[in-house]
Structure formats: structure tokens, C-alpha cells
């Protein structure tokens, strides 16, 4: 119960601030929490790097045009401690992503939640499902 409460508290903080907790820069300076993204596509590349991990995803719009999105996660040290592995998301995976779009770049976003076809989820910070 304590675990779920802590996850709930983290979720509330997320909602209250509108931006993920970022270590080395202001999240609000980069992402617009009012510009939500809800994308489904195929992962093309993963960068397990600092200060943020990134994954890239081909997303097709209703007209059939494909854009390659760059989606940001926390840093590997945070992700690892919260249960991620470097191949938790890998090229070829089809995933759905919700999050916020960058203020200054059209296909760049912060991935708050990643959902796989079998229903399992990963978040910006961790491998646990904060919706539970």
C-alpha cells in the first residue's frame, strides 16, 4: 500500500507541476504542458545516454505522412533504479506514447507514459505503472 501511495504522490506532483522532474534544466523551459501528445508508432532508435535517454519513433499521420519523433526520458541512472533496462524499449517495438511537446521543436517531446500492445507500461521515470 505504501508503494502505491508513493506512486500516487509522485503522480500528483507531476500533475501539479505539469512537467517531469528534470535534473539539469527547467522542464517548463523546454516542454509545454498544455501541448499534449498522444502518439502510436514504431520505435526506430534508442539512445541510452545522459543527461536523458531518448527513443525515436516513426508516427504516421492520417494522410499517411511519416514523422520521426524524438522522445525524451529521464536519465539512465534514474531509469535503472526504477526498474528500466536499456532494452526495455527497443527498435521495432510498436508503442503508444503520451506526454508533452517541446515548445521549440515540432517532433520533439517528453514521454510521460509508454504503453505496449500487451498493456504493460513504462513511465518517464520508471518501469512501474503509475496508473495502478
Amino acid at each position: 500500500m505504501r508503494f502505491f501511495l508513493s506512486v500516487a504522490v509522485a503522480s500528483v506532483i507531476w500533475l501539479a507541476t505539469g512537467s517531469p522532474a528534470l535534473a539539469h534544466h527547467s522542464g517548463a523551459a523546454e516542454f509545454d504542458s498544455t501541448k499534449k501528445i498522444d502518439l502510436t508508432g514504431v520505435v526506430t532508435k534508442v539512445e541510452w545516454t545522459n543527461p536523458h535517454a531518448h527513443f525515436y519513433m516513426d508516427v504516421k499521420d492520417p494522410s499517411g505522412n511519416v514523422a520521426n519523433w524524438n522522445l525524451e526520458l529521464a536519465s539512465p541512472n534514474v531509469l535503472i533504479r526504477n526498474g528500466w533496462k536499456r532494452n526495455s524499449v527497443k527498435p521495432g517495438d510498436t508503442v503508444s506514447v503520451t506526454g508533452s511537446r517541446a515548445k521549440d521543436s515540432p517532433y520533439y517531446g517528453s514521454a510521460s507514459m509508454i504503453t505496449f500492445p500487451d498493456g504493460h507500461k513504462l513511465s518517464f521515470l520508471g518501469a512501474d505503472d503509475p496508473s495502478k
Binding site: 512537467s19 528534470l22 534544466h25 527547467s26 522542464g27 517548463a28 523551459a29 504542458s33 521543436s105
Partner: peptide, 21 residues
């Protein structure tokens, strides 16, 4: 931190807290 700092060119606006709007 230096290995893939893609954020810097995308930061806009005045200095503010990590989650501040």
C-alpha cells in the same frame, strides 16, 4: 551529462525552477 545534451537549444524563457511554469 555532456554526452547527449540535446535540451540546451530547446530551452526558452527566464530562469526558473525545475518544474515551474
Amino acid at each position: 551529462c555532456q554526452e547527449n545534451n540535446q535540451d540546451l537549444p530547446l530551452l526558452t524563457g527566464p530562469a526558473r525552477g525545475p518544474g515551474a511554469q
